[in-house]
Design a protein around this nucleic acid. Structure first.
Length: 275
DNA sequence: CTATGGAGTCCTGTTACATCA
DNA sequence: CTTGATGTAACAGGACTCCAT
């Protein structure tokens, strides 16, 4: 039961998603790779087009072969379990409910087969608790690829003795859990970034204050050492080396309007030694 | 070539149930 | 035994793409 929890395969990454997923592009707004878009689709089906082709193949395939038949199960609603709940009869949302209720009956049958002692044939949904083995296999499969094409779904469902719909739901929920976990990680990371920046800002503000104070006291001005954090030359953005001891405060663009030269010049000149 | 509807899948949010402290 | 918290299977609904017509 805790299998998923222990290994969500999370990692913080700054790389942008490959965005092979043609849908829900808004999910990629995060700077982080929220859900690992693994390469299985890429390797198996290099383009979306091919994925779709595969789906079509599967549809055709399904018409001929009743792959969803569970061992010793009633098959009144087999077709419904093959794919999305929207798939039967029509995609009008009103039908989803009907079909899912049918699926529930299906599941109850299944549960009884699995040794469940629930016997009420009511419409209330009964939750199937996946066995450890089933969870482990699903998890393993998820590690390889976090989405399934119809063939994979069917194969997995067959292997696990579940309905394809259940496998589909499991993967959906698993992706949601992964994303949630990743969001938490991202949130934590951004929080730390924010804290660091706040601290940095505080330090810089303090430094600015110090510099202003020094600007007003000429006796300290000449002996001033450059602030340790201001190591970037404001004009060329190069990192400054050790400050040169004596240079005329004349070349900085920032000093032009100042009644007094800017302290920047003390080390900025080290970057632009005039010949 | 374009418009349209069906089919399939995904994501997000919610609900309902199972389990455990 | 009851109860609240937690995990998760299942569901609802909207969005999107592809494809056939």
């Amino acid at each position: 039961m805790m299998v998923e929890k222990e290994d969500l395969g999370l990692s913080l990454s700054l790389s942008f998603p490959d965005n092979n997923n043609k849908k829900n592009t808004q999910l990629n707004l995060s700077p982080f790779n929220l859900i690992q878009k693994t390469s299985w689709t890429d390797s198996l089906f290099p383009s979306d087009r091919n994925i779709e082709t595969c789906r079509v193949e599967t549809r055709t395939f399904l018409k001929g072969i009743d792959v969803n038949r569970l061992p010793a199960m009633g098959d009144a609603d087999e077709e419904a379990g093959v794919s999305s709940p929207n798939s039967t009869i029509s995609s009008v949302s009103g039908n989803k409910r009907t079909e899912r209720e049918a699926n529930n009956c299906d599941q109850e049958e299944h549960e009884m087969e699995r040794g469940s002692d629930e016997e009420d044939g009511e419409t209330s949904r009964k939750k199937l608790r996946l066995s450890k083995d089933q969870s482990a296999i699903l998890e393993e499969s998820f590690k390889e690829h976090n989405t399934l094409n119809p063939k994979q779904k069917l194969a997995l469902a067959k292997r696990l003795g579940l309905r394809p719909r259940q496998v589909e739901v499991w993967f959906q929920n698993r992706r949601a859990r992964t994303k949630l976990k990743q969001t938490e990680v991202d949130c934590e990371f951004l929080k730390r970034c924010c804290e660091n920046l706040t601290e940095e800002n505080r330090r810089l503000q303090k430094e600015v204050q110090e510099l202003r104070a020094l600007k007003l006291s000429p006796q300290f001005y000449m002996q001033m050492t450059p602030p340790t954090t201001l190591t970037m030359c404001p004009s060329c953005e190069r990192v400054a080396g050790p400050p040169s001891s004596s240079s005329g405060p004349t070349s900085t663009p920032m000093g032009q309007a100042q009644p007094r030269p800017m302290p920047f010049n003390l080390w900025a000149n080290a970057l632009h030694p005039r010949s």
